[in-house]
Each structure stands twice: as structure tokens, then as C-alpha cells.
Design a protein around this nucleic acid. Sequence first.
DNA 1: CGAAATGTAATAAAGCCAGTTACAGATGGA
DNA 2: TCCATCTGTAACTGGCTTTATTACATTTCG
Lengths: 143, 143
Amino acid sequence: MAANSRLTIAVHALAWMALAQRQGRDELTSDQVAASVNTNPVVIRRSLGDLRRAGLVSVRHGAGAGWSLARPPEEITLVEVYDAVEREPLFGMHHTEPNLECPVGKGIRPALGSVYGDAEQALRRELGRTSIADVLRETLQVT
Amino acid sequence: MAANSRLTIAVHALAWMALAQRQGRDELTSDQVAASVNTNPVVIRRSLGDLRRAGLVSVRHGAGAGWSLARPPEEITLVEVYDAVEREPLFGMHHTEPNLECPVGKGIRPALGSVYGDAEQALRRELGRTSIADVLRETLQVT
DNA sequence: CGAAATGTAATAAAGCCAGTTACAGATGGA
DNA sequence: TCCATCTGTAACTGGCTTTATTACATTTCG
């Protein structure tokens, strides 16, 4: 699986925004977030754009603009971030349609779809148990 | 996430082998499996090779060779298949090292590692609740 | 010995991802 | 009003992964 880093980037950005907020800086520009994540500001704007569409952050345009958390970090869980930035299902089906004249080829896709759905639900349930505030607390414990 | 289809291919192959076994055909060649999955036999040999290394199937070489299940389909769960064919972690970390002078950049990776580990465990636990026999039963219910 | 099948290397085509440049659009402040 | 600043997004690139395919050495049954 070509594991991408979208969830990592998004959670990093949110945790950094939560820390800045705690220090009195309510708004950060994509440049400032990119400096912590160590990537290009456009990558951050794309990620925060996903989070904005999901209602997790707000943005102000123009001069003196910036991003801020739309909700307290205790109330943003990782499953919301996951849903905001991850589009593809976890497991891919066949690239080419299986042989429909074989009973297995005919019925395997709905059967697998059900199993994969349950597995994704278990993953999402677990991600829902951790908030951005939790991640920030764990992060700051590394001294 | 560039979802690959390795788990799908492997489970399809195993379900087909379980059905063939029930019909008295204990051994299948990679060509026969490939005909149901509708892909190239080399793809099947690579997948079954992973499953052989994990002890889920056996193979006989030479003329009249073929693959067979190493254990009853009721005793092969999807988490074993997943572990056999999937190498990468579910979520990728940063491509480039984050800014270690930022407290978030410094501590985020171990914090995320712990969360990601729990999430993968939840996924694997769920996959462990379904066997190849379960998948085959579901598959044949599609009429 | 020879036919049949596996194991694997090498290669190609396609797609995804992160990074980057460029620029139009929005907006606060001088 | 004008300008500096920042967002939103398109376009492109390089690198990597995945699947498909060809080719061939190796194994083994009859």
C-alpha cells in the first residue's frame, strides 16, 4: 500500500494550531504551519482546505489573513480529520473485473465489500477515540 | 491512499481454492486461479508465494504441480492474509523530517506512531473475525 | 528424457503523491 | 484608492508503487 502522509500532515497542522492558540496566537498563515511541518506552503493550503471544507478550521483572506481552529481541540477527533483528507477506500478491489462465470468471481466483490466496510468502521471507531488535544499532550511529553 | 488490491487478490485465490477443494480438486495451478481472478498467472504466483511464506498454502513443483490450502479454510482468517501480503504501514509519516526546533515537530512522530499503531490493531482485530470459509459462504450467497 | 509447472528478474505503462512555480482573487491598512 | 499580503488553485515535475507481461532457469512427475 502506497501509504500517503495526508493524515500526518493534517494532524500535525492542527496540533500546531492548537499549541499556538494556547499561546495566544489564534491565527497562523500557511507559511508558518509549513515551517513546522517542513514542507511547501501549498501542500499546507491544500490540506487545510480539506479541513475547512469539513468545518474543522476557518480561514480569513487578504492581508493579515490566516487559519484558525473552528472548534476546541478537545472536540476534534482524528476520525473527522481522516474523513476530511482521505478519499480512497482502504483496500482496492480487482483492477479488472473478475471472471463472472466462476461462482467465486461472481460473488466475491460484494462479499469483500462487506468485510472491508466492517474493517474500516473498526479503524474509524479507534481513530474517533483520540482528539487533537490528546495528540498535542502526547507530543509535548517527548522532551 | 493508493489502495492496492493485494488483499483482494489473495482472498479471492484462497476462496477459489477452498471451493475447488470442496469439489474434490485439491490442487490448482496458477493458470487456473488466474482464470477466475482474471489476471496474469505471474501476479497469482507472486501472491500465492507470499501466502506460502506465511504457511497458508503449499505448492508442489514440476509437472502436474499445483497449489493447495495448508490449513482448513475455517482456520485461515483475513488478518493472516493481510499480514502475509501487506508490507507497508497504513499511514505514512512525513516525507521530510519535521522541524525539530518546533515542539510539535519534535514530538509529533512518536505520538502519531502510537495512535496509528492502535488504529492498525483495531483493523487487524476486525479482520481476524472473518475466515476464508466465511468469505466463501458470503460469496456463494450472491445468486 | 521431456512436458509442465513454479520462481523470479526485467521491463513497461499507468497512476498517485509531494513539491514547486505561477498567478488570479480577496482584503486589511496606509 | 492603492498596495502589500495572503489564500485558492491550476499546471507541471520527479519519484515511487502497482499491475501486467515476457522471458527463462529450475524443479519434478511420468
